[in-house]
């Protein structure tokens, strides 16, 4: 069926208000978008790695989730989701569960790119019928903006502060989406919040309803850590895709497909200058940093275009 935002927003909400995520938090937008892609008649078991989302959406006795929810540790959301899915398969076979359940794990970049990586990789390799969603906000925001392997180069994080010794984070961002694609799983995609959410929704739906392990990486900006005004999230996401900093693509059964090509590829500074974490890159004498980022983005973009041919 063709995508209709009007129909989608009419569905009952599965992630309700009253959670304690910050005003303007991208993680909440990601969760709502993923949960909206479930068929209303299907149930879900949500597994959540430690992180902002976990500490803010389930404070006893208040849960923001309409579905079953398990808080797992930082390092094992993948294993927990895999275990619950395996138990469900047995119970279903024995006729002890009749409803259809879907298994969705959420983790931030800390819980996914770094700490939960081995457990995620294992769950994917074992072939569990689960979706793993990373809400990628590019640092450990919950504990105070420490760098993760997802933090982009030059970003000012509290453990890689920009100053006279280092120019922000010295290393480039890990390309986790490509690493997940290399697992040879049936569906991997990268998206963010754009326009009528068609790209996001279709990817979430495919991730949930493709049999086997699937992975969705969602750029989910954090106004506190990235230092922009809360109301500007839509603009930040649009700039991320139009500068090719965060390209939209999917990998279906090993075949790479580009989902969005900017009409005009914008220079990276359009994206960088909106965010306080990159402010030092605009000081006199720092031009080389912007050039480095542009070179890196261009190289990654060319490589992506080649994979998608």
């Amino acid at each position: 069926m063709a995508y209709s935002l009007k129909q989608q927003v009419e569905k009952p909400e599965r992630f309700v208000g009253g959670h304690r995520l910050c005003a303007g938090c991208g993680a909440a937008i990601t969760v709502r978008g993923v949960m909206r892609a479930l068929k209303p008649e299907d149930k879900a078991v949500v597994v959540n790695a430690t992180g902002c989302l976990e500490v803010s959406s389930f404070l006893y006795p208040y849960t923001a989730w309409e579905d079953s929810y398990i808080h797992s540790a930082f390092e094992n959301a993948g294993a927990t989701a895999g275990g619950v899915e395996a138990a469900y398969r047995v119970l279903k076979k024995k006729g002890k569960v009749n409803e259809t359940f879907k298994f969705i794990a959420f983790g931030g970049d800390g819980g996914t790119y770094d700490i939960g990586f081995q457990s995620l990789s294992g769950a994917m390799e074992r072939g569990h019928d689960i979706v793993y969603v990373c809400y990628d906000n590019e640092a450990y925001m919950n504990t105070g903006v420490q760098r993760s392997s997802s933090t982009p180069r030059f970003a000012d994080a509290t453990t890689t502060p920009a100053g006279s010794i280092i120019p922000g984070k010295p290393q480039n961002k890990k390309d986790l989406t490509a690493i997940m694609a290399a697992h040879g799983i049936p569906y991997v995609a990268q998206t963010t919040f754009l326009g009528n959410f068609k790209d996001f929704h279709e990817k979430a739906e495919k991730a949930i309803y493709t049999e086997g392990p699937t992975f969705l990486n969602v750029m989910s900006p954090c106004p506190r850590g990235w230092r922009y005004e809360t109301e500007d999230i839509a603009e930040i996401c649009k700039l991320a895709v139009d500068t090719c900093v965060w390209p939209l693509f999917e990998v279906v059964d090993g075949v790479w497909k580009l989902n969005y090509e900017p009409r005009k590829k914008l220079p990276v500074e359009e994206y960088l200058k909106k965010q306080g974490r990159f402010r030092h890159m605009f000081n006199p004498g720092s031009e080389w940093m912007i050039e480095e980022v542009q070179k890196h983005v261009d190289k990654k973009w060319e490589a992506l275009l080649n994979k998608c041919k």
């Binding site: 935002l5 989608q8 937008i29 709502r32 919040f193 959410f197």
Partner: peptide
């Protein structure tokens, strides 16, 4: 048009009968 609805992090834009 509903464009604002999915963008709200706090599920605070209700929709009813279109």
């Amino acid at each position: 048009c509903m464009l604002c609805v999915p963008f709200c992090p706090d599920s605070s834009i209700p929709v009813e009968n279109g």
